[in-house]
């Protein structure tokens, strides 16, 4: 979004590096490449923002990879998720058109594997500073002096309330 700049707290680690080309999958540590591509298609189907570049969804999958490396139970759930979405139709999930992908996901909404993928996509996608920038969330502010002089009350399309209200 123009006119704003999103900031992550400078104390936090920088975003995960992700390559622009197909070699991005080389950064995976645990997840199988096919699994990663399928999860990528799932993340994009769950939260389809046409204006966002592919790399933000790739970073989500790289977070899944870290989760899987950290927790065998999570790794198991991701594997189960991919097996189920791939078995649902005569084509692998990531080759399906959007409406079919949506139908497949709708059919498994109550499963624990779906829940993990859906919640984790929300957790990581909307925590990505590039997404913040795109949607107008400026983020960390104390290191910039807060918003006291940077627009905390700059809304000008409604009348100002009386002073001291």
């Amino acid at each position: 979004m123009e006119g704003i700049k999103a900031h992550k707290d400078p104390k936090l680690p920088p975003p995960i590096e992700v390559a622009e080309g197909p070699e991005w999958v080389e950064a995976l540590t645990l997840l199988d490449r096919d699994v990663a591509h399928t999860l990528l298609a799932a993340a994009r189907t769950l939260y389809p923002h046409d204006g966002l570049p592919e790399r933000v969804y790739r970073r989500v999958v790289l977070h899944f990879d870290r989760m899987a490396a950290h927790s065998p139970a999570a790794a198991q759930s991701f594997a189960e998720f991919v097996d189920r979405v791939d078995a649902a139709m005569p084509l692998p999930f990531r080759e399906l058109s959007e409406s079919y992908r949506v139908a497949v996901l709708k059919g498994m909404e109550t499963s624990a594997a779906f829940r993990l993928v859906q919640r984790s996509t929300v957790r990581f996608l909307y925590d990505d500073v590039e997404v913040w920038q795109a949607f107008g969330y400026e983020g960390a502010s104390v290191h910039l002096g807060g918003y006291a002089t940077r627009g905390f009350n700059d809304l000008d399309w409604l009348p100002d309330p009386p002073a001291g209200i």
């Binding site: 939260y47 923002h49 909404e109 859906q118 919640r119 909307y126 913040w132 949607f135």
Partner: peptide, 27 residues
């Protein structure tokens, strides 16, 4: 902020309708 608005808006909600709302975060 955007991260928790997205998480708490309706925890099971996904798809184009959700995406259309959360994209308007600044509004």
């Amino acid at each position: 902020g955007l991260p928790t608005t997205a998480a708490f808006l309706d925890p099971g909600w996904w798809g184009r309708d959700f995406a259309g709302v959360i994209e308007r975060y600044a509004h």
